[in-house]
Amino acid sequence: MVQEHEPSGHLGTAADGSADRAHQTDAAEPTATRRTAGDTESSRASRGWWDRNADEYQEEHGGFLGDDRFIWGPEGLDEAEAGLLGPADRLKGLDVLEVGAGAAQCARWLAAQGARPVALDLSYQQLRHARRIDAEDRARGGTAGREPVVLVQADATALPFRAGSFDLACSAYGAVPFVADPVRLMREVHRVLRPGARWIFSVTHPIRWAFPDEPGPEGLSVAASYFDRTPYVEQDEQGRAVYVEHHRTLGDRVRDVVAAGFRLIDLVEPEWPDWNHQEWGGWSPLRGGLIPGTAVFVCERDRAAR
C-alpha cells in the first residue's frame, strides 16, 4: 500500500491512552488501556478493526495515498523519489511481496514499474477496496493492458507461500506494528525471500510512543516512558480487544531484524517536507519539524540458507 495503517500513538491512537476513533462503528466507544495482548488476540483485533474501518480510512486518506503511488508514511516520502527498493528500472520482472497492503496502492505502483507484485493483507474489506480501485482503473482505460494486482488474504505471521518465492518484500505501515511477535513475522518474510533479497518496512517512529498523539503543541511534551513496551489496547465492554498495537524501541526493532536473519543496511527517518500541510492523526507540520514520525528499515536477507 501505503496503507499507512493507523499505528499507535500514531495514525489515530494515542500513546497516553486517549483514542481518536471518530470513525469507530461500534455502538459503545472502546476503552483505551495498556495491557498484554498475545498473537491470537492481536490478529483477531486487527482483522476486525480494519474490516470495520476500511471504508472510512480509504475515503479519508485515499486522496493522499493515490491509487498507484508508493508512499512510505504521513510525511509523504514517495518511493519514486526515495528509491529505497532500489533503482526503479531494476524492479522490472521482480517477484515482490507487499505485506499489509491495504488497498494495494504500493503494489499497483510496483506493477507499473514492471514488477510482479502480490498484495497481502489480513483485512477482507481492505482488499475489496483494492478490487474496487482496479475495476475503476479498468473502466477508465488506465491499466494499459496490465492484469489486476494479485491479492491474498492471510496473516503476515503465517505466509502462504513456498520458501524463496520473492525477490523483494516491502511494507508501508502494514502488519509489523500490529503483531505480538515481530520476529515471527520477520522470519516468515525471510523464509519466502530469495538469498540477498531486500526487506523494507516503515513503522511509526518508536520515539513517538513517549508523546501524546496530538498534532498541536500538546503533542510535544513527553507523557509516557519510551521504554514501556506494554501494548496499546482498545477493548469493548466485555474486555475483548478491538484494536491492538505493539511498541518496540528503536533498538528492539534492530534486534528483531537481526534475529530473523536480516542485515540492516539503512535506517531512514523522513523529514517533514515544506509542501505537506496536512495533519494525519498525530502527524502534523509542527511535530514533523521537531521530532521524527516515521522510521523506514532497509534490510537485506542473508545469502546463506537458514
Rank of each mutant, 00 (worst) to 15 (best):
G145P: 09
R116W: 12
P117T: 12
G141C: 04
D137N: 04
G141S: 01
H129R: 14
V118Y: 05
A115D: 05
L122N: 02
G145L: 07
Q126G: 02
L127T: 06
L127W: 09
L122A: 12
D134I: 03
I133A: 05
L120Y: 03
L122T: 09
A139G: 12
D121I: 11
L127H: 10
R116G: 06
A115V: 09
R138Y: 06
E136M: 02
Q125N: 15
H129A: 06
P117A: 08
I133G: 00
L127K: 12
A130K: 07
A115L: 09
A135R: 14
Q126P: 00
G145H: 08
R128W: 02
D134P: 08
D121Q: 09
R132W: 10
R132I: 11
A139D: 13
Q125V: 07
P117S: 09
T143Y: 00
R138V: 12
I133D: 03
A144E: 03
G114Q: 12
A115S: 10
G141H: 01
P117W: 13
G114D: 11
S123E: 08
Q126C: 04
G141M: 01
G114C: 05
R131W: 02
L120K: 06
V118I: 15
A144H: 04
R132C: 01
A139K: 11
R140T: 04
D137C: 07
R128P: 00
A115K: 07
R138I: 08
D121V: 14
D134G: 14
A144T: 01
A130Y: 04
S123F: 08
R140N: 05
L120Q: 03
R128M: 14
T143V: 04
A119W: 10
H129V: 08
R138A: 15
D137Q: 04
G141Q: 01
Y124K: 05
L120G: 08
G145R: 02
P117L: 10
A139H: 05
R116A: 14
A135G: 15
P117V: 15
R131N: 05
R138M: 11
V118N: 03
L120D: 04
G141D: 02
R140V: 00
I133R: 05
A135N: 15
S123M: 02
S123Q: 07
R116Q: 15
A135H: 11
Q125R: 14
G142T: 05
R128Q: 15
R140M: 01
G141Y: 01
H129C: 07
E136Q: 13
A139C: 10
